[in-house]
């Protein structure tokens, strides 16, 4: 197992659409282990996607279980994930391993239903909400060559106000 180098913006590998995984073999699982080790071994983060280590593959790992008092599915390996359904919109703060020293407000769906394969090729369907849904959407964006910088909303407050009153 080894830690991989995280590529940072403006590396062009972060803005490319990643390629679907076709082979679910030991090599894939070794890469997933390295990707997870990279996520856990670096600055605190709850997700990582293959393009962030320079690999154009539709693989993301999410684990928000470190956050107290939220709904979550534990450690998730999401391969070739697709969002089947999204609803609601919530503004929240995001940062990214590939964009050091910046956090900003991003609008995301509050709930998403996602289908993905695990590292053995089994199809899974998940219903995510809140913080975990945000993390999953952020990582799927990486697979489509998007960064949270592409989705920043104003620092001004009206969006927060609306959220508080809802």
């Amino acid at each position: 197992m080894s830690l991989l180098d995280v590529v940072t913006y403006p590396d062009p590998r972060l803005t490319q659409k990643a390629i679907a995984v076709a082979q679910f073999d030991d090599e894939l699982r070794a890469f997933v282990r390295d990707l997870e080790a990279t996520m856990r071994g670096g600055p605190p983060s709850v997700g990582i996607a293959a393009p962030q280590v320079g690999r154009s593959l539709r693989i993301a790992i999410v684990d928000v279980s470190v956050k107290p008092n939220i709904a979550h599915h534990g450690r998730l390996v999401l391969i070739n994930p697709e969002i089947l359904h999204a609803e609601g919109s919530v503004v929240g703060r995001e940062g990214c391993l590939s964009v050091p020293d910046y956090t900003g407000n991003v609008m995301r769906a509050g709930r998403v239903e996602v289908t993905a394969l695990d590292e053995y090729g089994s199809e899974m369907i998940y219903a995510f909400e809140g913080f975990e849904a945000r993390a999953v959407q952020h990582e799927i964006d990486h697979l489509n060559g998007l960064l949270f910088l592409d989705r920043l909303v104003s620092r001004r407050n009206d969006l927060f106000r609306r959220k508080v009153y809802k």
Binding site: P44, G47, A49, K67, G92, E94, C96, L97, A135, V164
Partner: peptide, 11 residues
């Protein structure tokens, strides 16, 4: 006065 935690998601 309203307090809202800011839970920054880093990913």
């Amino acid at each position: 006065v309203r307090l809202v935690p800011i839970d920054t998601m880093i990913g």
